[in-house]
């Protein structure tokens, strides 16, 4: 691993200022960054440690009720603490499930909420510095498009990049219309979660709308979401694997009719994939197999598979149908 300067910070303003410099990276749980630094993919000259800040300011690690019924997740809260939180389990089942189906017990004890939604793709061409990757080295090409692409995305792809966004939590947050609180060099701002990530287009190296020095401080879960929700994840082995396809859904069904629906897909998109098309296909319809299949068709209508990942189109449809079936049962 290359040498770097280690800078612990105990003040948000100082963190933003330090992080605004080139070649810096924030570290919280470290489960993505240390891994990628060891691979040579990430090569920061300065690593800014936010953990001192986390120990000093409890609001950054807390799960707290807001007066209007929303629930605030401190960005430096660990995945495990949020996953096991009683309020999260009771009111936001899909968030708790997405967290517990991700990574391993050890990783969940280390990784934070803010870091989780900013984790980098698992695309093997991105992780191997000997391969071409427009996300890692803009303009170098994409090894995956003409290469092995079984795990890559089928939604939101471009001619430059088909890397899958790996986070489970982010899929649940996209379905919920969560909001992201960001502290930057010019103050604080709030970003709708579905606008945090961007599709690759011609610039796969840009993955979010965050700017240098931005620190995610909290993520708010809205009140009044559909009562029944779930996160269904399909993968190559039963545990500790990234999704081949996943679905975060929430439904309100009364009198057999779907009154409200939230749908997002994981494992298939270049960003956490909210599907308003699927939601439109559900709302107002009877909660039955026909509506669920219509929603699945709508969600995957724009899918663009490559050589090895065509199976994901059907897998994602079935995953969504099963999630909708389970949550409306």
């Amino acid at each position: 691993m290359i040498s770097f300067d280690y800078v612990p910070v105990d003040d948000l303003r100082a963190a933003s200022a330090a992080g605004a410099h080139a070649h810096t990276r924030f570290i919280a749980g470290g489960t993505t960054l240390v891994d990628l630094m060891r691979l040579g993919v990430e090569r920061p000259t300065t690593v800014i440690d936010l953990n001192v800040l986390a120990r000093k300011d409890a609001s950054l690690t807390a799960v707290s009720d807001l007066p209007d019924g929303r629930l605030r997740l401190g960005a430096l809260a660990h995945m495990s603490d949020v996953a096991w939180d009683r309020r999260v389990r009771d009111r936001y089942a899909l968030v708790s499930e997405a967290l517990l189906l991700a990574a391993s017990g050890q990783v969940r004890n280390m990784a934070t909420i803010g870091g989780n939604v900013l984790q980098r793709t698992r695309c093997p061409y991105f992780r191997d510095v000997t391969q071409a990757c427009n996300k890692r080295v803009p303009g170098s090409g994409c090894g995956a498009i003409a290469g092995r692409n079984r795990e890559q995305a089928i939604l939101g792809t471009s001619e430059q990049c088909i890397a899958t966004h790996p986070s489970d939590l982010a899929v649940a947050l996209a379905a919920l219309d969560a909001h992201v609180h960001v502290r930057g060099t010019s103050g604080e701002r709030v970003i709708p979660f579905t606008r945090l990530h961007v599709v690759p287009d011609a610039h796969p190296d840009r993955e979010t709308v965050l700017r240098p020095g931005d620190v995610i401080t909290a993520i708010d879960l809205p009140s009044g979401i559909p009562a029944r929700s779930t996160y269904l994840k399909v993968r190559d082995r039963a545990s500790f694997a990234f999704a081949l396809a996943s679905a975060a859904v929430a439904l309100d069904v009364s009198g057999g009719t779907i009154r409200a629906a939230r749908v997002a897909l994981g494992g298939v998109g270049t960003k956490p994939w909210r599907s308003p098309e699927a939601e439109r296909a559900l709302v107002g319809k009877a909660a039955n197999d026909a509506a669920f299949h219509a929603a699945a068709e709508a969600a995957l209508a724009e899918a663009r598979p490559h050589r090895d990942n065509a199976f994901k189109v059907e897998l994602a449809k079935r995953t969504l149908v099963r999630a909708l079936t389970e949550v409306s049962a």
Partner: peptide
């Protein structure tokens, strides 16, 4: 998981974190 240790009582992967932290 071979590198698992406890940090403040919680299981942690010692390979994915810097000692200084």
């Amino acid at each position: 998981g071979a590198c698992t240790v406890h940090v403040d009582g919680r299981r942690t992967l010692s390979c994915l974190t810097f000692a200084m932290m």
